[in-house]
């Protein structure tokens, strides 16, 4: 009996802000789209997030941050993922992230940034599209 492959996704909040409404809504949407959502909760350090992605063998890491610390924390996370050999993992960013920061974030390995008004369906579609390629 071979079981169906599931998308495993780590939803994490790096940094110190506690605005987890978005992270929770998106986690629920991912679950309702048939994914396995590993929720890590608030105040995750880059090391904790990368290590979680490794141990859970995640396909996707979805980061939500609203405090403005994304330019410090996101690059740290992608760097650690690479260091752990997780080169294929799809890393997404969300939260309050100004347009002008997005190119720099993409350069360090954030696949896409989804702002506050994004339809959850759009994110799910993006994940399905980009994990299929692997």
């Amino acid at each position: 009996m071979s079981r169906k492959r599931k998308i495993r996704i780590v939803v994490a909040k790096p940094g110190l802000d506690s605005h987890d409404r978005g992270a929770k809504v998106i986690a629920r949407a991912f679950r309702d789209a048939g994914m396995e959502v590993i929720y890590t909760g608030l105040w995750q350090t880059p090391e904790q997030i990368a290590e979680t992605a490794l141990q859970e063998d995640a396909d996707v890491v979805a980061l939500s941050i609203l405090s403005g610390a994304h330019m410090t924390l996101f690059p740290k996370i992608t760097e650690l993922l690479k260091k752990k050999g997780l080169n294929e993992i799809l890393v997404l960013g969300g939260g309050v992230i100004p347009e002008e920061d997005i190119p720099a974030l993409k350069k360090v390995g954030i696949a896409e940034v989804f702002g506050p008004d994004t339809h959850t369906g759009k994110i799910i579609e993006f994940i399905k599209e980009n994990t299929r390629k692997k």
Partner: peptide, 22 residues
């Protein structure tokens, strides 16, 4: 800012990138 709100000094490791942000 968040470090202050969470009772952390600005030089605490968890405060990295958050000092004076919000």
């Amino acid at each position: 800012d968040y470090p202050t709100i969470l009772g952390l000094d600005s030089d605490h490791p968890m405060s990295l990138g958050e000092v004076g942000k919000c």
